[in-house]
Write a protein that binds this DNA or RNA. Structure first.
Length: 160
DNA sequence: GCCAACGTTGGC
DNA sequence: GCCAACGTTGGC
């Protein structure tokens, strides 16, 4: 079983929407980056867990834990002419973009902020993809030791 | 709003 | 295949 971190902008899709969705499950569509596509299509497996991460927001950070409930399948929004994520070069017979379904496991008791993660970038979270300078990938793997460490932060008081 | 990082595009 | 221009991401 593997661990992941998936970015979302709360103004586009937030925890409230996921919590309110049928079966607390959503299709993670709209990813248009080849590296992320490969993870969605090939690497993310049923039962894998992922942090839901808020980006482009006042306090960026991890807000929830999700679980893969359906493995990679073609992203239909790529074929919808009027859709924001429409890609005329994606052929339904040979789809270019993929998505997975994610279910909310639980919210974190508090937001584990980017700032807080950075504070451990030199040690426990060394090499974590999210913390690499200029990282823009919307889906990144998380090592299991790092996953455990990040969760151990949850019950600590927020560092400042 | 600024700007660094970096992926993509397209001319050659 | 190179690389400059351009667009996007995302923290600040």
């Amino acid at each position: 079983m593997r661990y992941w971190l998936m970015k979302t902008e709360p103004t586009t899709f937030g925890i409230e929407q996921l919590a309110a969705a049928p079966r607390r499950t959503t299709g993670w569509d709209g990813v248009r980056n080849y590296q992320a596509r490969n993870m969605l299509r090939d690497e993310m497996k049923k039962g894998d867990e992922a942090f839901m991460y808020y980006s482009s927001t006042e306090v960026p950070g991890i807000v929830a834990i999700m679980e893969v409930v359906r493995e990679g399948y073609p992203d239909p929004t790529a074929f919808e002419r009027r859709h924001h994520h429409y890609d005329p070069d994606s052929d339904p017979k040979k789809p270019r973009w993929f998505m997975v379904d994610m279910r909310l496991q639980r919210r974190l008791k508090r937001v584990i902020t980017l700032e807080e993660l950075r504070a451990h970038a030199g040690k426990e979270l060394k090499g974590m993809a999210l913390l690499r300078p200029g990282n823009r990938l919307s889906i990144t793997p998380v090592e299991s030791a790092q996953w455990k460490f990040i969760l151990s932060l949850e019950s600590r008081a927020a560092a400042k």
